[in-house]
């Protein structure tokens, strides 16, 4: 789908965040970037989104992509209804696909709440509205920057399930930034562990998606993936 080749980036007057960073993301794949704060995970997302410009390197796309971004904060417009928030990408592009907006809201379980305002929603519903806004853009690549980090554990599990359900229903790739190795191991086809602007290891959990959530979370593949990720995060790249 796209290849990031030798990207280097430093914020104005700051230290080098990324130094010749490279990854490949395939179609219909969820790739997680995992690592300590300041290792450059979010910077990679913003470079891929075109929100930041790299000093060196390039991003090569196999074909034009429709991008969508989900932030850690729901980033909804408090003055606009759920429907208006979800239709924002279309509004900015000058053509609102009402069917896509309606389907996105239905998909995240917010059907019937279109006219509510963010202040009238719970924390989980706001995050769902934020995901619906991204889905309404019919993305081929979903960029997610710690989208569920601010949610409590139960809600976080629910949102993980929602993402996997959506992924099973729609064709899109996702580049997912997280601090949680459990979340990364559960959601991802590939987990890239980052340290100081470089990838220090890759883990492919290979979970059997035909199993239920509980079975997947207790499966040997999941536990092995967590162990492997833990070792990489501890600095053992062997």
């Amino acid at each position: 789908m796209f290849s990031v080749r030798n990207l280097s980036f430093a914020y104005d007057g700051g230290s080098q965040i990324l130094d010749r960073f490279s990854i490949d993301v395939n179609s219909n794949e969820i790739v997680s970037l995992l690592g300590p704060s300041g290792c450059g995970k979010s910077t990679v997302l913003r470079l891929v989104a075109g929100l930041l410009q790299a000093e060196e390197g390039e991003i090569v796309w196999s074909e034009p992509q429709e991008l969508a971004f989900v932030f850690q904060d729901h980033a909804l417009m408090p003055w606009a209804s759920v429907e208006k928030n979800a239709s924002l990408p279309g509004r900015l592009k000058g053509q609102i696909d009402e069917k896509a907006v309606f389907e996105a809201l239905e998909a995240v379980g917010l059907g019937g709440l279109e006219n509510r305002y963010p202040s009238e929603l719970s924390g989980g519903q706001r995050m769902r509205a934020s995901v619906a806004r991204a889905l309404a853009a019919s993305p081929t690549l979903l960029l997610m920057d710690e989208p569920f980090a601010a949610l409590d554990e139960i809600l976080r599990f629910q949102m993980n399930e929602l993402l996997l359900t959506l992924k099973a229903q729609r064709e899109f790739s996702a580049l997912f930034v997280t601090h949680s190795l459990f979340e990364a191991a559960y959601l991802s086809d590939r987990v890239l562990v980052m340290q100081d602007g470089l990838i220090c290891g890759t883990v492919e959990p290979g979970l059997d998606r035909t199993l239920g959530a509980e079975q997947q979370r207790t499966s040997p593949a999941y536990l092995t993936a967590i162990q492997s990720i833990s070792r990489l995060m501890a600095g053992d790249s062997a």
Binding site: R46, A49, G50, L51, L67, A68, F69, F71, D73, A75, M77, L88, P89, L92, K93, A137
Partner: peptide, 9 residues
């Protein structure tokens, strides 16, 4: 974040 979203679109 909203500012970035407006830039993205």
């Amino acid at each position: 974040n909203l500012l970035e979203l407006f830039t993205l679109y």
